[in-house]
């Protein structure tokens, strides 16, 4: 089952919309709550990253019986140094973003830790594609 959501850069009040919707579907399917938790954390962090760091993006969600696939494609500055970005605590978030409680530099590491398969494809000055897969078993 496929869903699509769009995300606007800078719209922090809507961040979390996609993860809430996905959570609702997974609950209705009776997926184990510890797995739902991982999906919600990973998706929420990825969603917030588009809001905080990119201009706009699209989230494609595909729920199958074996697991969930999330693809987040954004138009934005891209990530020049992925390894650095993946380091716990590393953040380029502006002071304004930090003031809103975001920008702890834990997003990408958290996404990695909560997913079974995770890839980043990024082109500087163009955008970033995150693929996240989480198995239900």
């Amino acid at each position: 089952m496929k869903f699509q959501y769009s995300v606007e850069g800078g719209d922090f009040t809507m961040a979390g919309h996609a993860s809430s919707q996905v959570k609702k579907s997974l609950k209705q399917l009776g997926i184990d709550s510890s797995i739902i938790k991982r999906v919600v954390v990973a998706l929420y962090e990825a969603e917030v990253n588009i809001v905080a760091h990119a201009y706009r993006g699209v989230i494609d969600v595909d729920i199958e019986s074996a697991g969930i696939k999330l693809k987040l494609t954004d138009e934005g500055p891209g990530i020049p140094d992925i390894e650095k970005a993946m380091t716990k605590g590393f953040s380029t978030a502006s002071a304004a973003v930090r003031e809103m409680g975001f920008g702890a530099g834990m997003g990408l590491p958290n996404i990695r830790d909560n997913s079974d398969r995770f890839t980043i494809d990024t082109v500087v000055n163009k955008g970033t594609v995150l693929s996240i897969e989480i198995d239900f078993k």
């Binding site: 089952m1 209705q28 399917l29 009776g30 997926i31 709550s33 729920i63 019986s65 239900f136």
Partner: peptide, 20 residues
């Protein structure tokens, strides 16, 4: 213990179809 609301079916294949 949780008391989850099984909405469609306990079998996920069936549940997914019904949800769709």
């Amino acid at each position: 213990e949780p008391r989850s609301m099984v909405k469609y079916d306990r079998d996920i294949e069936v549940a997914l179809k019904k949800m769709e």
